[in-house]
């Protein structure tokens, strides 16, 4: 049953990812991306990470994708502005390089004989809960967590810096 779900979700994820890249119109691409995000949250569910799955849907498929769509609509891309790709030597080379790297990575990951502990279903369920994640986040990973807060603040300030007009400057 689990294998069936995995194959189903994996196929779905790959198909939507490909559809997103090859789709001609930006709105379609964004919608395919939503589907892709949903299928990723399916993976998290299979791995017993319920909290991550919910967050994935809320944050990525929900909030971020809505922003994407808004931006696309505000920019008002017409049909003639759709993304067209021209095949040239550079792209073929990049494609080949990508294929080589992908093959290497697949080979590496395929040969994986794990050192990670095998968890029973109950243990795995306990790891993925909000309590377990919150506990780790505020004890062991406190420092990275707090620095992440600075990171997000910095991103907002950076966006403000880049978005404002030059004329706002005093002195």
């Amino acid at each position: 049953m689990e294998t069936f779900f995995f194959v189903f979700i994996a196929t779905f994820a790959i198909c939507t990812a490909l559809a997103m890249i090859f789709s001609g119109s930006t709105v379609n691409s964004a919608l395919y991306l939503v589907l892709h995000m949903l299928s990723i949250s399916g993976f998290y569910l299979l791995l017993q990470a319920q909290f991550l799955a919910v967050i994935q849907i809320l944050v990525y498929a929900g909030a971020i994708m809505v922003l994407f769509l808004f931006v696309i609509m505000v920019l008002n891309l017409g049909e003639d502005d759709t993304l067209k790709s021209h095949i040239n030597f550079k792209e073929i080379f990049a494609f080949l390089l990508g294929v080589v790297v992908l093959a290497q990575l697949l080979y590496i990951v395929g040969g994986y004989s794990g050192v990670l502990p095998e968890l029973t279903v109950e243990q795995a369920k306990a790891v993925g809960t909000v309590e377990a994640i919150g506990d780790e986040l505020f004890t062991t990973f406190l420092l990275p967590f707090e620095v992440t807060a600075i990171l997000l603040t910095a991103a907002v300030v950076g966006a403000m810096l880049l978005a404002q007009k030059t004329s706002n400057v005093e002195d």
Binding site: L143, V147, I150, L151, T153, A154, V157, G158, M160, L161, Q164, T166, N168, V169, E170, D171
Partner: peptide, 24 residues
């Protein structure tokens, strides 16, 4: 930045956040 007339006030918090990242 005053000399080249681009003295945005946001530069200073960003420089400090950047320093926090570097220390980390």
């Amino acid at each position: 930045l005053i000399g080249v007339k681009h003295n945005f006030p946001q530069v200073y918090p960003l420089l400090m956040f950047c320093t926090v990242g570097m220390i980390t």
